[in-house]
């Protein structure tokens, strides 16, 4: 830690915001161009998407490097630290609301749209004239809608891999907390061990998830196109999986930063932010395990 200034640090200028805006634009412009291309048409979309994505990684590296340097030089007083904490908290809240949109969609189709298609409530006439054959149910029987889009499928059994994944994520929350306490107590070896263990658990979760997806596609015929069951299943677990991936990468970077001696007993907001994020993906998983797999 460098010398402490009791002043609110405001950098005079920074190239990272404009770099970030440009690479984000390249990424989405490439993606849009790719998606909108006619079948068989070879556009520049894919290339642009790749360039933009690599640019985003580079931008994060550069931006965080300058922030870490400023932190190591002691430019950040406790007030700056509070700003960072609030930023992370509200960012996680926005993520909660993002998942909320998809959970909301899940509850809506289960509570309303599927039963209505089966003739419940004010869906009586729709059912009678359009889908009189359809016996509404969730899961394997009717979860892909009255047209049985994507063909018959089986659901993933909750008490196999999903249960294992629940245990993995719950224990990873414990290990990251142990690592945090060790950091506060100044036991660097213990921090590295338990943080490393957390990274491995995150990777293990992702491995199981990938295995489960492969099995769903190959053996259960459960795909993204399996009606509303398939899309809620894969979009919810998929977005969660992306967050676990990001969380695991962040934990790995924090592990390297512990190794490099970036954190002290008092100043380790980077560690805490990633730990909060990890707990957040953990809680989302509990919701998923309950509402997507079990119920």
């Amino acid at each position: 830690m460098g010398q402490q200034h009791d002043i609110y640090y405001v950098p005079s200028k920074s190239q990272w915001p404009i770099v970030a805006a440009v690479v984000m634009f390249l990424t989405v412009f490439g993606a849009a161009h790719w998606l909108d291309a006619e079948p068989g048409e070879s556009g520049f979309g894919k290339t642009l998407l790749l360039v933009g994505f690599v640019g985003i990684l580079g931008m994060f590296f550069g931006w965080f490097r300058s922030v870490i340097r400023e932190s190591m030089r002691g430019y950040y007083n406790s007030q700056v630290d509070r700003s960072f904490r609030m930023g992370m908290m509200w960012f996680i809240f926005s993520e909660v609301m993002f998942f909320g949109a998809f959970f909301g969609a899940l509850f809506y189709v289960r509570m309303f749209s599927v039963p209505w298609l089966g003739g419940e409530g004010h869906g009586v006439l729709t059912h009678q004239y359009l889908w009189s054959e359809y016996a509404a149910s969730w899961g394997a029987g009717g979860g892909n809608g009255p047209a049985h889009v994507g063909g018959a499928f089986q659901t993933v059994a909750p008490w196999g891999l999903p249960l294992l994944n629940t245990l993995i994520l719950l224990s990873s929350s414990v290990t990251v907390t142990i690592a945090h306490h060790a950091l506060q107590a100044g036991h660097r070896g213990k921090v590295l061990a338990f943080l490393g263990f957390t990274v491995l658990l995150g990777a293990g979760f992702l491995f199981c998830q990938a295995h489960e997806y492969a099995e769903a596609y190959k053996e259960l015929n459960l795909t993204l196109g399996s009606g509303v069951y398939g899309c809620t299943f894969f979009m919810l677990t998929g977005f969660h999986g992306m967050h676990v991936t990001l969380g695991t990468i962040m934990l790995a970077i924090i592990w390297l930063r512990v190794l490099a001696g970036h954190f002290s007993k008092e100043h380790h907001f980077g560690f805490e932010a990633v730990a909060w994020y990890w707990h957040f993906v953990d809680v989302v998983w509990l919701g998923l395990f309950m509402f997507v797999y079990i119920l």
Binding site: A105, Y108, V109, F112, S113, V114, W116, L117, T126, L130, G142, G143, N144, G145, P146, A147, V149, G150, L224, G225, G227, V228, Y229, G230, C231, T232, M235
Partner: peptide
């Protein structure tokens, strides 16, 4: 996906 397609159970 079929979030908004009644044929697939959506709405």
């Amino acid at each position: 996906t079929h979030f908004f397609d009644a044929a697939g159970g959506g709405d």
